[in-house]
Amino acid sequence: MEQVKIFIERFDPDNDLSPYLQEFIVPKEDRGTVLEALLFVYEQIDSTLGFQFGCRFKNCGLCAIEINGIPQLACTTRLKASMYLRPLRHLPRIRDLIIDREPIDSYLSQFTPYLGRQRPPNGEPETFIQPQIAKILETCRECLCCLSACPHYDYRKLEFGGPYAFVKLARFHYDPRDSIDRKAQISSLGVKQCRECQKCRCVVAIPIYQLAISPFIG
């Protein structure tokens, strides 16, 4: 079987002064994925490699990393020779490729990231029409790739919520059952600072700029 070289960024804050690249040689399976390569390293070469995964196909978002500088899911990216694997940038790192999601979650929890009903349901079950836009925004895997792709975002910069926050709140804006002024929230999260570069590509093809940014800038 063909063997390929990959380079993985390592960093253990308890033991390393700074991040460094480590080279590994892994087999290239038929239509093999980057996640497969990470598992090979973990199982056969170096079990101190820190990385996360969950569902193995595009649902949980936990295997999101930067591959050759582009934030993607390791489970849906085909392995190629000489790939550089790094943790998602702009986010706090725990170790190696593992980032810490908790600060992002607690930040967002200040903005009522759940349905804000003023009126109870109009029946059991309710009768209402959910717009397609809300449904599309709900397909967000919460992988945080968009935050990494956004050149303006950094988790320490609290005045700019970033694409992920805009997507989460816009989903409620379009929901007819929600009574909170989400436009005001998204505005207070700095949406007007967006440079409209549209680099926030989404791994499940949510049109982030069109649905969750552009309508809230004007």
Binding site: D12, P13, D14, Y42, S47, T48, L49, G50, I94, R95, I98
Partner: peptide, 8 residues
């Protein structure tokens, strides 16, 4: 290994 953080 003796790693403390996220020792798989």
């Amino acid at each position: 290994s003796s790693l403390k953080r996220w020792n798989g």
